[in-house]
Write a protein that binds this DNA or RNA. Structure first.
Lengths: 132, 132
DNA sequence: CCGAATCCATATGGATACTG
DNA sequence: CAGTATCCATATGGATTCGG
């Protein structure tokens, strides 16, 4: 069995920081999907309307943008304001929570940029060491 | 795929940090999937053997552990050492690159833990403000 | 203009059996 | 013990259509 020090042994044999029904997974699932992070970053400069977002992201379908925004809104990362006009106007912007998330995300993005060469090199190396 | 005809000038506006064929997406796809991050965190304390990882993660199948490790190895985040013994023994450990990734990841995990209540509250709020 | 509903293709994850 | 191969279920993403 596992004797992980920082893990209080539960009756079941679960051992890790990321147990299954896990808040951390919640977050990572959100930034890990295809569009959420992109939407958040697009909203960083300021408020955007629906089709404005669509144009800026450019290759996102209405459907996915709609779904993504709804999820982000549910999680309190983005706020939605609908103006009762004709034609309708809906504006989206980052909440403070959403903005605060962009800080650690930026660190990750920075890592990615900085270490991209290393990752690519590793991939090349892998291909060449092939006896597989 | 991209190259939309009615696309306004992307170049002059906020340059999208995440263009489509994107190194950042590469990384996020890796930590965004079901198991990679969990494996990396499990390896943080030190070297682990294959079935040792399986037991610690507990609910991962051999298949997914194998796939995940191979990907992490390809990307240079994890190193694999096979000992020519009978029965075979294979050890995995974080590379320096893998360890360096855990730093920004830790920031994200910290954010998740810290703001989980806020996210849950937002979800509750959403349920109540919704139609019905 | 905003976005929900429908329908569909593919990607991802898993159970199991098999191999060296 | 450490995987790989096969087969299958579901999740995710997208094109199109419809409606407020």
């Amino acid at each position: 069995m596992n004797d992980n020090p920082h893990n209080p042994d539960v009756s079941s044999s679960e051992s890790l920081v990321l147990a299954q029904p896990c808040p951390i997974r919640d977050v990572l699932d959100r930034i890990g999907d295809q569009w959420s992070l992109l939407v958040l970053l697009t909203l960083r400069p300021g408020t955007r309307r629906f089709n404005q977002l669509r144009r800026e992201i450019d290759d996102i379908s209405k459907q996915m943008l709609s779904r993504t925004l709804k999820q982000l809104e549910q999680d309190g990362l983005v706020s939605r304001t609908a103006y009762p006009e004709v034609p309708p106007r809906v504006e989206y912007q980052l909440t403070e929570l959403g903005q605060s998330l962009l800080t650690p995300v930026a660190a990750l993005v920075a890592w990615a940029e900085q270490h991209q060469p290393a990752v690519n090199a590793a991939r090349e190396r892998y291909k060449h060491t092939t006896a597989r």
